[in-house]
C-alpha cells in the first residue's frame, strides 16, 4: 500500500499493464510528448517508446476506429479521448462499430480495447467541456462502462479493463485527479468489472452513487450520521454492467434509496436504477426512491450558477432527510 493520487494510480495501472503485456499500446491527442493534457500519461513515452505510446491527429472518430481495427488484429489499444465531450465526435466508431463487431460477425471477431476519457463538470469549462455523458454509453449493449471514485479502484478497474476482451469505456473524473488514497502496490491487484462496493455501511437509507458523486455521498453520510441518520453508500464503480445484487441487497436492508447522478436527470442512470429498485424491492420500500441529478440544462460558465447545476453535498443531505422524514 502506498498513498497516491487518482491521476498517479491510473498512470501506474497503464505502466503495469504495458510491462505485463507487450500488446498494450497507448494513443491519443497529446498523450506522448506532451504527456497528456491532464498529465495522466506522464513517463509513458520515456519508458515504452514511440512504437507503443503515440500522439494522434485531432481525429476522434478515427482515434477510436484505428483502435477497433488494431484490436481486431491482435493489439490491445488504450485510446485516450482528451475529454468525454469529444467522444461525441467518435460515436459512430464507438456505437456503430466497436460495440457491434463481435455480435454482427457472429462472435468471430473480438475487440479488446479501452477508451479512457476524463469527464464531469465543476471546473467552469462551459457548456461544451463540462458534460457527464455516462448514460450515453450505458444505453448501448456491447461495451463495459467503468467510473471509479477512488485511486485504488481507479488502478484496479483500469487494469481489469485493459485485460478484458471486450470494449471498455473507462471514465475518469477531472475533479478527482488530485484526490489521494491508499493504493495496493501489487501489480496483480484487479478490481472486478460489474461489482459495486459498499463504501460505507448503514441501516436507514441507501445512497447509490459513482465517481465524484460517491465522494459527495460519503461526506453527506458523515454529516447525516451526526443527525442520527445512518446511510449506506453503494459505489457503483461499474455502470455497465450494473451490479443489481449489491444495489438491491442494500435497499432490501434499508428500505429507502437515494440515487445520485452527475448526468442530466431525464433518462439518466438514476432513472434506470430507481426503476430496477421499484421493480424488485417495491415490497420493502418505506419511501419513494429519490434522484439527485444534474440539472437538465447546458452547463453555464459562471461559478455562482454552475454550482446549482451539479449535485452538491447539501442537495444529497436534503434528499436523504426527505426520504427519512415522517412523511413517508
Amino acid at each position: 500500500m502506498s498513498e497516491m493520487t487518482y491521476r498517479d494510480a491510473i498512470n501506474l495501472a497503464l505502466k503495469e499493464e504495458m510491462r505485463h503485456d507487450p500488446s498494450v499500446v497507448v494513443w491519443g491527442e497529446d498523450v506522448a510528448l506532451y504527456e497528456g493534457s491532464f498529465k495522466v500519461t506522464r513517463g509513458l513515452l520515456a519508458e515504452f517508446g514511440e512504437e507503443r505510446v503515440k500522439d494522434t491527429p485531432i481525429s476522434e472518430n478515427t482515434i477510436i476506429g484505428v483502435a477497433v481495427g488494431a484490436a481486431m488484429g491482435g493489439v490491445r489499444p488504450v485510446a485516450e479521448l482528451m475529454t468525454v465531450n469529444f467522444a461525441l465526435l467518435a460515436m459512430d466508431q464507438i456505437v456503430n462499430h466497436m460495440t457491434k463487431i463481435h455480435y454482427m460477425f457472429g462472435g468471430q471477431a473480438v475487440v479488446p480495447m479501452t477508451i479512457r476519457m476524463p469527464g464531469g463538470g465543476g471546473s467552469q469549462l462551459g457548456a461544451q467541456h463540462s458534460q457527464s455523458l455516462e448514460t450515453f454509453f450505458m444505453h448501448c449493449p456491447g461495451m463495459r462502462v467503468l467510473y471509479p471514485s477512488t485511486p485504488a479502484d481507479a488502478k484496479g478497474l483500469l487494469k481489469s479493463a485493459i485485460r478484458d476482451n471486450n470494449p471498455v469505456i473507462f471514465l475518469e473524473h477531472e475533479l478527482l485527479y488530485n484526490s489521494k488514497g491508499e493504493v495496493p502496490a501489487d501489480p496483480e491487484y484487479l478490481v472486478p468489472i460489474g461489482k459495486a462496493e459498499v463504501k460505507r455501511p448503514g441501516e436507514q437509507v441507501t445512497i447509490v452513487a459513482y465517481a465524484r458523486m460517491t465522494v459527495l455521498a460519503l461526506q453527506a453520510a458523515e454529516e447525516l450520521a451526526g443527525e442520527g441518520i445512518s446511510c449506506e453508500v453503494v459505489d457503483l464503480r461499474s455502470l455497465a454492467p450494473l451490479d443489481d445484487d449489491t444495489i438491491l441487497a442494500s435497499v432490501r436492508k434499508t428500505g429507502r434509496a437515494v440515487v445520485v447522478e452527475e448526468c442530466w436527470r431525464t433518462c439518466g442512470l438514476g432513472a434506470e436504477i430507481a426503476s430496477r429498485i421499484f421493480e424488485n424491492c417495491f415490497d420493502v420500500l418505506l419511501a419513494p426512491v429519490r434522484r439527485v441529478s444534474g440539472l437538465d440544462v447546458p452547463m453555464p460558465y459562471s461559478r455562482k450558477i454552475e454550482k446549482i447545476c451539479i449535485p452538491q453535498k447539501e442537495t444529497i443531505v436534503q434528499a436523504v432527510r426527505e426520504v427519512t422524514s415522517g412523511g413517508f
Binding site: 478515427t62 476506429g65 484505428v66 477497433v68 481495427g69 488494431a70 484490436a71 481486431m72 491482435g74 493489439v75
Partner: peptide
C-alpha cells in the same frame, strides 16, 4: 479507420 488499425496491428 478500421482498415488503418488492422494495418497498424
Amino acid at each position: 479507420p478500421i482498415s488503418v488499425g488492422l494495418a497498424f496491428s
